[in-house]
Design a protein around this nucleic acid. Structure first.
Lengths: 363, 363
DNA sequence: CCGGTTTAGCAAACCGGTTTAGTGGACCGT
DNA sequence: ACGGTCCACTAAACCGGTTTGCTAAACCGG
């Protein structure tokens, strides 16, 4: 009912032009194998008939779909709400579009990513935030689908793209330490997968190591209760800082593992009468677009989010055409971006400057 | 080279189980047509062989892809950066996932959407922000691909989902008028397509009509130079307000056609020493997540962005299975959400309250 | 004028499933 | 013992392209 007029097939064109199916196929794909004027004639017949090669049929016979899948460990309905993912997807899309590839998003189907992959018609896959030790990764690899892991553990036999999370985290902590902060709190993020929370190769663990490294070499202690984990959202950050503060901790600096959490934390701080950065310094992570528009503008660790997406598909396409080995692994640099949410520690202020931060409530 | 181990086909399973291809197909799709134990046996053989039906082959023979396309008039690399689109996509994804459909995003290929659709393997399409008068819409319809237009002109023969832009805009304007504002500026958005800027059915035109309607019935004039258009981004809003203010206009209220523009305008206002809402009231449009986290929290017109996406695919799926006619068109409600970015007009303040807004700089 | 090479185009196999139209045997009532 | 149903399963056609191997004609130099 829906499709009244049958779409013309290659046979229709062949008949109308008085040639074989082969000739029509050649007219589109290998014009050099036809006399020039024949090719032109066939194409014009095809045009008047409104013929378009059926993409699915073409996929089947060529054995390639010209589609790359983006694998997410969470449902798409949650993942698309995340601006970080949006930027990553934009990068993926840019590279895919440039190479004429189409994008398909793949999320767990009835609880299983492997099942979902089986239903997807893709040449290869870019997986974001999927732990390399995830049990399904092995299944997918066995299924023979080339895959690039982004933000995952570096695995020798598995191509991947990462950023220098540990180095970035260290920069963040060193920045606060350099400003005189000694009492710090870490607002950690939940790993996107259930099992991965304490995956030693996961992003949260890597960032935590970076924080620890900087603190250790400055001889600063980070008590366990000063590390609290929450979902990487503004509300999550608000709740996490509230929990920290209300439990009696009085940090002068906050190391947040995402910008969303950092912004939420600033909100909670303001609600408690704290001024940022006069009373509390906050440094985020990721440098999403929003970070520069926050109030105050957020000091954070920049990572090339979109670039990660581009690199991932470039790597994947290289693997698909066989020009790149499977052991390729790239680590992109992170850097500190100082904006307005960090400043000298309150204690230090009294010693070095005078005035400045007005409303100090130290404990 | 890449795919060393050939993926098992239905014939492999048939041979291994000593049955016909048909039987294997039935074992998966119509178990009732097989003796129960045979079906079980076949499935277990398939399992041990690691057989998964080839999705592309299945698409070809069934004539359905179980994929719905999301059509965007701009490149995906720009569209994914837009939080509004992210929320819309989340809604689309929620409905698609619930029905077991896969998502494919389709953007112009070599400048043409029709070309892109021709390359896409989808059962139907949800188009966002595509003018119904766009020349390509007709091409796509002729191609026989069912399509639901979102945020487009209502066309009698074309199913669509819209929100009450005009009514929402009127609410926004009435809100400011009710607060005593008389000198207003409108920050308009560029239509997503080049041609559509002055499409009388487009979203910007509809919202502008709503503003005008409210102003007209209050007897307030809106000079042409008080309507300025910019891209729907924070920076766009900053620039637009700057342009307005620096050209000598001194509005006490701003009607922004998107939240991003509103937030940008607040930023520009603050840079000029204006306090929001004491000196300037700003009302946005859309109610994206960010609106509630802006400082001050943004008064805006709420529209059900994600719900629009859900409705669109529900409508599309209904059309695909033939249970819904092609003339269906839904208009979702909008409503005013009052937060902290609007308040009494400065002039009025002196008359009705005393004190309150401190730092008034009227001209 | 002749054997060898190129050129232009075609028939048929193939990709991996689904679906239609049977087929042979078991079971049934009479 | 016999015609009719049912049941369990299969052979072959089909979806709409691409690709391989081949043939007949045109072209070539000697």
């Amino acid at each position: 009912m829906v499709q009244v007029i049958r779409r013309p097939t290659i046979s229709d064109v062949a008949d109308a032009a008085g040639v074989s199916k082969t000739a029509v196929s050649f007219a589109f794909n290998r014009p050099d194998r036809l006399a020039p004027d024949t090719a032109v004639r066939i194409r014009s017949v095809a045009e008047t008939l409104g013929y378009r090669p059926h993409p699915v049929a073409r996929m089947l016979s060529q054995g390639r779909t010209h589609t790359i899948g983006v694998l997410t460990p969470q449902a798409l309905s949650v993942v698309f709400e995340n601006p970080f993912f949006g930027t990553f997807a934009a990068g993926v899309a840019a590279a895919a579009e440039a190479s004429g590839y189409v994008l398909q998003f793949v999320s767990p189907f009835r609880g299983s990513l492997a099942r979902a992959i089986g239903r997807a018609s893709v040449d290869g896959v870019v997986a974001i935030g999927l732990s390399a030790h995830h049990p399904e990764v092995e299944q997918i690899r066995k299924a023979g689908v080339p895959m690039v892991l982004v933000d995952s553990t570096a695995l020798p036999t598995q191509p991947g793209i990462d950023v220098d999370d540990e180095g970035g985290a260290r920069l963040a902590a060193e920045h606060l330490i350099g400003l005189g902060h000694r009492r710090l709190a870490v607002l950690s993020i939940e790993s996107s997968e259930e099992a991965g929370v304490d995956d030693p190769g996961g992003v949260p663990a890597r960032r935590l190591r970076g924080y620890h490294a900087a603190l250790a070499s400055a001889g600063i202690e980070l008590p366990d209760e000063a590390v609290v984990t929450s979902p990487s959202t503004i509300l999550g950050g608000t709740a996490a800082f509230a929990e920290t503060w209300d439990s009696g901790l009085r940090p002068t600096g906050v190391l947040a593992m995402s910008d969303a959490i950092a912004i939420g934390a600033m909100r909670a701080a303001r609600e408690r009468g704290l001024a940022v950065p006069a009373d509390l310094s906050v440094v985020g992570f990721d440098d999403v677009e929003l970070a520069q528009f926050a109030d105050p503008a957020l000091t954070t660790i920049h990572q090339p989010i979109a670039r990660k997406g581009e690199q991932a598909v470039e790597l994947l396409l290289g693997i698909l055409e066989g020009s790149i080995g499977l052991d390729q692994h790239e680590i992109l640099a992170t850097r500190l971006v100082v904006r307005a949410s960090t400043g000298p520690a309150p204690d230090t202020v009294r010693l070095t400057t005078e005035g400045g931060a007005s409303d100090q409530r130290q404990v």
